[in-house]
Amino acid sequence: MANLPAQAAADTLGARLGRVALYAALGLFALFYLMPMLVMIATSLKDVEEIRSGSLLAWPQSVSLDAWRYAWSEACIGVECTGLAPYFRNSVLMAVPAVLLSSLFGALNGYALTKWRFRGANVVFGMLLFGSFIPFQVVLLPMSQTLGFLGLASSVPGLVLVHTVYGIAFTTLFFRNYYVTLPDDLVKAATIDGAGFFTIFWRIILPLSPSIIVVTVIWQFTQIWNDFLFGASFTSGGAQPVTVALNNLVNTTTGVKLYNVDMAAAIIAALPTLLVYIVAGRYFVRGLTAGSVKG
């Protein structure tokens, strides 16, 4: 860029002002995204009196974790005053098996559909892929009948089943798109050496898959942990996941409204996925884009 130095010298002031404006704009946007979270954190650390009298935007004068403790173990959700703890446990018991099962099925499907192609493999993939776009409203009614029929109505195992089944569409898409980029010669050479389907998967394919496994697990965990529709439709009372319990807690209208408790509860419900995002944000972004681009 031969003409750049001259140009840069010519409008140093303009360029510098431009940079200042650029950073100012970026900073303002950062504030827009951070503000709700910061206000939530600050509010969760205040007592009710300070919320009423003080400013929304002020940092708490005396930091107190009372609201957090109350939200975790004492707050009333419906008629039960157990705090969020048991519902948080439900979410863990729901998310962990559902994530593992759906990822395992996705990996095997992706491997079979790309490295051991059979007649109709594309049709099978297309039918699974469409499943990842279904608005779940269209399966709510038959699913709730089916869960009742299986004796899994309003239970955590029922939610595991639902999330596993509807997760397979996404996990198959992720693994299939990744395995399609691995050279087929890997598999071919191993078959000539006499290795079978599962030996090749275990010895050759899985060792090449850590990054796609991380992407898939993070994506599935975020989706399942944050789900509200299935939890609200298929469970009641003690079997509810944390998102449903949070919504009930916030909308419980008896007594004085404890805003600090609401905010602490919301942060508690958000914490697991937020931590995953902060620790492994790179993979989270890859999941977002992998879920959208290219079949």
């Binding site: 709700p36 919504n247 916030v250 905010m263 419900a269 958000a270 996925t273």
Partner: peptide, 22 residues
């Protein structure tokens, strides 16, 4: 980038709770 994208990691219920209050 991390700041602009983090809302995508949290539940819509949490987002709704926060904004309802704001």
């Amino acid at each position: 980038r991390t700041i602009y994208l983090y809302p995508m990691a949290i539940s819509y219920i949490v987002t709704g709770t926060a904004w309802k209050w704001l």
